[in-house]
């Protein structure tokens, strides 16, 4: 049986208590996206400022409220993508979702195939602190809390790309 320490790692509690990059950015140049988890009312507001010249995340700020997992995941996401090239950010999103869904598919008893496909996404991506969120997969109802920030980031990237196209 998974214990509380599996879910609430020290680094997660640290991000929850002292969230990084909280605040707002002027829109434009930043792009603002809001993400909701209708089930529990968790809310993430993401300000993403992408430099169109270099295709880098120039700055990122977050607001919103919710449980420790959603807020810590949002804080960790912001720290992980700030100053990174968009290509790496996209890779990170895929890797993070793979981290969450490998276990999801294992939990659901799916075939091996899925798992190894997803493992390929993870290969060569350094998740760093984000790996602390791995424990969340043992608590299936909380996975959505952890992925909310990342889905919101994905949406922000898609909308930014559309605006530039």
């Amino acid at each position: 049986m998974a214990g509380l320490e599996d879910l609430y790692r020290e680094i997660i509690l640290d991000h929850y208590r002292s969230p990084r990059n909280r605040g707002e950015l002027p829109v434009p140049p930043a792009h603002k996206v809001e993400g909701f988890n209708p089930l529990c009312g968790d809310e993430v507001v993401l300000y993403l400022d992408v430099d169109p010249e270099s295709d880098m995340v120039r700055d990122v700020k977050i607001a919103g409220q919710g449980c420790s997992i959603s807020q810590a995941s949002t804080s960790m996401m912001s720290a992980a993508v700030k100053g990174r090239p968009l290509a790496e950010v996209r890779q990170l999103i895929r890797a993070f979702k793979a981290l969450m869904s490998i276990h999801e598919s294992k939990l659901e008893g799916d075939g091996e195939g899925d798992g190894s496909d997803l493992a390929a996404e993870l290969a060569g991506v350094r998740l760093g602190d984000l790996e602390a969120l791995q424990g969340v997969v043992k608590f299936p109802v909380r996975i959505k809390c952890a992925t909310l920030a990342w889905n919101t980031l994905q949406q922000a990237l898609d909308e930014t790309a559309q605006a530039q196209a």
Partner: peptide, 9 residues
């Protein structure tokens, strides 16, 4: 403490 964290503990 968020309600979900309370009920988890």
């Amino acid at each position: 403490i968020h309600a979900h964290d309370v009920s988890q503990v």
